[in-house]
Design a protein around this nucleic acid. Sequence first.
DNA 1: CCCATGATGTGATCATTGCTCACATCATGA
DNA 2: TCATGATGTGAGCAATGATCACATCATGGG
Lengths: 195, 195
Amino acid sequence: MTRTTKPYHHGDLRNDLLKAGMDLLKQHGQSAVTTRDCAKIVGCAPSAVFRHFADRKAFITGLATEGFTLLGTRMTAAVETVDKDVQHRVAARTYIDFAMQEPHLFRLMFQGDLIDIEDPDLRAASEFLRNDAALANPTAPNQKDDEAVLAWAIVHGLASLAIDSQLCRGLPNDAKQRTDALMRILDRTASPFKD
Amino acid sequence: MTRTTKPYHHGDLRNDLLKAGMDLLKQHGQSAVTTRDCAKIVGCAPSAVFRHFADRKAFITGLATEGFTLLGTRMTAAVETVDKDVQHRVAARTYIDFAMQEPHLFRLMFQGDLIDIEDPDLRAASEFLRNDAALANPTAPNQKDDEAVLAWAIVHGLASLAIDSQLCRGLPNDAKQRTDALMRILDRTASPFKD
DNA sequence: CCCATGATGTGATCATTGCTCACATCATGA
DNA sequence: TCATGATGTGAGCAATGATCACATCATGGG
């Protein structure tokens, strides 16, 4: 055996708690992400959670932050591999695919009353979206900015409606196939994504 | 005084509970909508709530159902007063305006893990959206259907992003003005809404 | 008209959950 | 080395959703 007595101090409790929360979230949704269950999974006392997070909202915000980081990583990685003229289309596909694969996480990331919108870490992790879409000032007179906002709205709207089961009738179960179905709509109708 | 002793049986407890829930929701968000507080506001025992709703989720679903009904009423009323060629634009404005005026309710209506998506009353109340957008089969080969889905996605995406404070930097505080700002984006960029 | 029955409301009570606090343990650097 | 601050523990509190036995009442069939 590698270890007989478990040490009093946990290695990286904060991160392990987030990982446990991610598992619960992925499998059973946000209501199943309970601080006590996360503590039990990690193997620490329920009170230990609050050494690393001010309250449950802060913990959930931490999960959302990880989600934005993950989405950002995927999008930049995907965009880097393709030609400039199809980058926005690839970005859209990656965004939608992320939502289809991680619906609970995606929902959480945009659930304004469950997370702390002002949290600096969260803002930093999600900044790339506002930058990419030039959303610092959505009322800008700049036509290009408007189109960027609109593109985000289209993709985000499609993903959200599909997740919240308003669009689910007729959509396939498999995540990839659902992404394909939504992308087909984009291809055929949305001018910003037409090549 | 009209009544000295309060009767054992409440008049229309179910509806009064929903009204109380709506008030709490509007003012403090979904986390403040607690079955006990609603009971206290209405003046009944905490347990009485569960005579009319299976559980909290069913109660929240009832609120969402009222929300869809309200939105449907507003949209049909608004559309009826204008010419056919601008109906979709007026519908879009009404949708966005509703979201800006009742952000908590709007969020709730599309929060898949807080409400019971399969509830027949909810489905009936929200059916007009799927009908209007011809969303029964979003993968339909019909180009017109695709455009309807896209139009809904645009409007829904704009409203959602604005509410969840990802778009809030630069947006005015007043609900009407926020609606105007978002509609301006639609006017300038979204081809389905260009006249 | 009466009363049996089902619907509606009550009070007591439970388990779960977020959260706090006094205290224990340990790592670190002065 | 040892004082100090960071990290973890266990007990425990208040709020909340939910259940259950019981109370109250409306109503329709006899």
